[in-house]
Design a protein around this nucleic acid. Structure first.
Length: 893
DNA sequence: TCGGTCACG
DNA sequence: ACGTACGTGACCGAC
């Protein structure tokens, strides 16, 4: 078989790699501060292209010189001049790139006085003579001149893995010229990146036409006098010297003397002993995961590292069940289920155990109800270690079991350690601690391909890997938690909260489908009437739900002014349509259509489809480990965005009722919790006074910002402005954002902000201090030590950096408010039990708690809840709680 | 699967 | 000069 030589243009590909992942620059940093974006992309290239190719010889060729110190610099002193300086973030990766290459089994080579192109030229010709097939990888089109029947140039199109293969045939098809003519083409066009000119006004298109006619530069100039007069002819004649010089510069040398030969370039394959520690040093978790997966499946072996003894997992039977009785103190547990929604999902199987007693599992979920296992799960003495306690609690509840004494939930812990990149998947989160396992996606397949293997042993082995990982992860992850002083946050907030949430979800919120259907019928009629009217005015039918089609109607057919554009076309968002309404009556109808259609599709049809027919309840899931700030989110369905602001939408809440006769809905919300948190964390006495002085914080802010005397009244416009400023402050203010929101000039917006900061100087000081802290530490914290990392805080990209700075200001506020209501929920639950109330929590909506309770309990409930919420934490100003009660959620306002 | 839109705090 | 208000989820059309 023909031998194969692989030649790689190192600088060119590394450069591509760096810019292919440039937008990831600030996220790809090791703990020592080394940027790794180019290394990651280059490694991807080596893994996906070189490793599978297994050439006989391989070399990555680097430029030893900038190019000016070669013969090209002698010919043309301006050669490669004026290039942008190599970014420092790129330069620092160079030495590691060479290491990476070496560990992948390739040679590095460079030689003074020669550019990489020339080295590649020489080696490719030598190899061809010796009977090799050669593949050259580069991002530089010049190298395609080397293409022959035995030399293929792989030219990157985009990034480093999107590649075109330049064979002589390909070049003929693409340009209708030979590889050698590539040089003549360059001679005519010149090269802007290498900074040398060809012939004035000749680009690729013209150059090709000339080559088709005259074949090459010599022949062209031999016949240039015969050309009919034109500007081009003049240019050709005037720039003759430049063209011939460009030809010399573009010609790759193929006959220089090198200090190495083919015999020195033998490819040795990936050196696992060296590349593993290297990947570890660079935090290449994905690459390490791949290696471990191959190791586990026996595809590869790592010398000096005995493969970790495979954890034996026993299929649980009546015969070996008794062995679990040896579990006295602590056990790891995992129950797997299909999909995401544990309220309704089919359960797949479970495994429990620990390394001493061993791991036992089964597909037969009924075994969980056996006396032995039930005793373990519901025991207050045996500590349980899990991944996602809320899911496990509900799954077991569905089987009639009450999970007790959970000590360790790796999902909660890893969320508290770092919210960034938390995908809620055990196999990826475990990688943070260098623990690797087959992912569920690999094991079961994804989407439609999802299948549970027939082989029960394979299943319990898979789950066993996960349970064993949970066991191993406890020590290192809890140690990190301790280092960050987050033990309180975990033990006293998130872990107990998980149980509160589990019970809320399991309880569910009763919804009357008939009520929703009734509203749906009415809405359908109104929507149909509107649609007819809109089509009639438009003079045609179109899809009203398509912003694209609507855009064509409004801005092309009706010629309305374009106020805002989106990435893909015209914006038809509310604020745009509101501005257009006075000019075109149809717009008003469209706005109303949108409003009603939203209510119908999302809230009537959407909610109807998720009411559980068995209990007429909706069981949402609160995601406890998703948001970057510490808030909860709600899915399947989202019960945190049920309409409130318009009466039309608010009526949806009339369908949410208490689950028992004689019960009512009760709601309690924190008033202005975020601004109160702001007053507390900044310690600003004026803001604190404003809260103590008046009922209405926005009016008080207006007094301060507009300099009103105590007896002067606040007009509604002032209040509106002050309210917007308050929002802006909480969001991490910018004059641009405020000006857009208020529809005022940026200058005026800035004046408001300046005045605000004069009036509340410690708010200003805090904003500056928190930004500084974020820049120095890379993260910000809430009052309960919840942490948010900001990888972009020191980014060179203005947008990314500014965004991170606003986030630095907002997250401690939003996150501390989240801490407070979470604590309140835990305390409320305890207080309800202490007071023997039947009332229970149904929902949390960020600053609001919703309960259902017997009517006769209401008075006491109100007292207990208000008390607990008021005193959830002690701030420098009081928290204020407002509450309401009624037969439906609508009435509890 | 992505982007636009709109519902909530 | 740069060009976004902070945090979410669901639905729909377009690809």
């Amino acid at each position: 078989m023909t031998k194969k030589l692989l030649l790689i243009d190192g600088n060119s590909l590394a450069f591509r790699a760096f810019y292919a992942m440039y937008n990831q620059l600030s996220r790809m940093v090791t703990h020592d501060g080394l940027h790794t974006n180019a290394l990651v992309a280059f490694n991807n290239f080596l893994e996906s292209i070189v490793d599978p190719m297994q050439p006989d010889a391989a070399c990555v060729v680097w430029d030893a010189t900038s190019g000016t110190e070669t013969f090209r610099g002698d010919i043309y002193p301006e050669y490669k001049a004026g290039r942008d300086k190599t970014p420092a973030e790129f330069k620092e990766q160079f030495p590691y790139l060479r290491e990476l290459v070496e560990y992948h089994g390739l040679h590095n080579y460079e030689q003074k006085g020669l550019e990489a192109d020339d080295i590649i030229g020489v080696l490719s010709r030598e190899a061809q003579k010796a009977g090799y097939d050669v593949e050259i990888f580069t991002g530089d089109q010049d190298l395609t001149q080397l293409s022959t029947d035995h030399v293929t140039v792989q030219l990157t199109r985009k990034g480093v893995t999107d590649i075109d293969s330049y064979t002589p045939e390909f070049i003929r098809e693409k340009f209708d010229i030979t590889p050698a003519q590539i040089i003549d083409k360059k001679a005519l066009t010149g090269d802007t990146s290498d900074n040398y000119p060809g012939v004035t006004k000749i680009g690729e298109k013209t150059a090709l036409k000339l080559l088709w006619k005259y074949h090459d530069l010599d022949n062209l100039y031999a016949k240039v006098d015969e050309m009919k007069p034109s500007k081009m002819k003049e240019n050709l004649i005037n720039d003759k010297d430049s063209a011939f010089r460009a030809r010399k510069l573009a010609t790759i040398i193929t006959d220089a003397k090198l200090s190495i030969g083919l015999q020195d370039l033998t490819y040795s394959g990936v050196d696992l002993d060296k590349i593993i520690p290297f990947y570890e040093k660079l935090d290449f978790r994905q690459a390490l995961a791949k290696i471990h997966a191959m190791q586990a499946s026996g595809q590869i072996e790592v010398k000096g590292e005995t493969p970790k003894e495979k954890q034996v997992v026993h299929i649980l039977t009546d015969n070996n069940m008794a062995e679990l009785k040896a579990i006295k103190d602590e056990v790891a547990l995992h129950i797997d289920f299909e999909g995401e929604n544990y309220h309704t999902a089919n359960m797949i199987g479970f495994v429990l155990g620990n390394p001493e007693v061993g791991y036992y599992g089964s597909q037969n979920l009924d075994l969980l109800k056996s006396d032995v296992i039930q005793a373990i799960l519901t025991s207050e003495d045996v500590a349980k270690d899990v991944f996602n306690v809320k899911a496990d609690w509900i799954l077991l509840k569905r089987l009639g079991l009450e999970l007790k004494n959970v000590k360790f939930d790796f999902l909660l812990v890893s969320y508290l350690l770092d919210t960034v990149g938390n995908d809620n998947v055990l196999s990826t989160l475990a990688q943070r601690f260098n623990i690797y396992m087959t992912s569920d996606e690999e094991f079961y397949g994804k989407g439609a391909k999802f299948t549970v293997p027939e082989d029960e042993q394979a299943l319990v082995d898979h789950l066993g890997q996960q349970v064993d990982a949970i066991w191993q992860l406890q020590e290192p992850s809890m140690a990190d938690l301790k280092k960050r002083e987050q033990e309180h946050l975990y033990h006293d907030i998130e872990l107990p909260l998980a149980f509160v949430l589990a019970k809320m979800e399991y309880q569910g919120f009763k919804v009357e489908p008939e009520k929703l259907k009734e509203m749906g019928v009415d809405l359908d009629q109104r929507i149909q009437t509107l649609v007819d009217k809109i089509y009639q005015i438009a003079g045609e039918e179109f899809n009203l739900n398509s912003p694209k089609q609507l855009g064509v109607l409004l801005f092309e057919k009706m010629n309305l002014p374009v106020i805002k554009k989106t990435k893909t076309g015209y914006s038809t968002a509310v604020d745009v349509l509101e501005q257009l309404a006075p000019q075109a009556p149809i717009v008003e109808y469209i706005l109303l259509y949108r409003q009603l259609n939203k209510i119908k599709s999302t809230y009537i049809d959407g909610l109807l489809s998720v009411i559980n027919p068995k209990d007429s309840k909706i069981h949402t899931r609160f995601l406890q480990t998703l948001t970057q700030t510490g808030r909860l989110s709600s899915v399947d369905p989202n019960l945190q965005n049920i309409p409130m602001r318009t009466e039309e939408g608010r009526k949806i809440r009339q369908a949410f009722v208490a689950s028992q006769p004689g019960w009512n809905i009760y709601g309690a919300d924190y008033s202005q919790i975020e601004l109160r948190v702001l007053a507390h964390v900044t310690g600003d006495e004026n803001l604190q006074k404003a809260f103590l002085n008046g009922e209405d914080i926005h009016a008080e802010t207006a007094r301060a910002v507009f300099g009103l005397k105590p007896d002067e009244e606040v007009d509604p416009n002032m209040r509106r402005t002050a309210k917007a400023v308050n929002f802006g402050i909480v969001y991490g203010i910018s004059d641009y954002g405020l000006s857009k929101n208020l529809g005022i000039s940026r200058k005026d917006a800035k004046a408001f902000i300046d005045t605000y900061f004069q009036e509340f100087p410690k708010v200003h000081e805090w904003m500056e201090a928190i930004k500084k802290k974020a820049h120095e530490d890379g993260y910000v914290e809430t009052i309960a030590n919840r942490r948010r990392y900001l990888p972009d805080i020191n980014s060179k990209n203005f947008n990314l950096r500014s965004f991170a700075e606003r986030t630095a200001m907002n997250s401690p506020i939003q996150g501390s408010a989240a801490d407070i209501i979470k604590l309140a929920m835990i305390h409320v639950k305890a207080a309800l039990e202490e007071n023997h109330l039947d009332a229970h929590l149904l929902l949390q909506v960020h600053d609001e708690l919703v309960f259902e309770a017997p009517k006769e309990e209401m008075e006491k409930l109100d007292k207990v809840v208000s008390n607990v919420m008021d005193s959830a934490v002690k701030l420098s100003i009081p928290l204020k709680v407002e509450s309401h009660e009624g037969p439906t959620w609508y009435d509890a306002k």
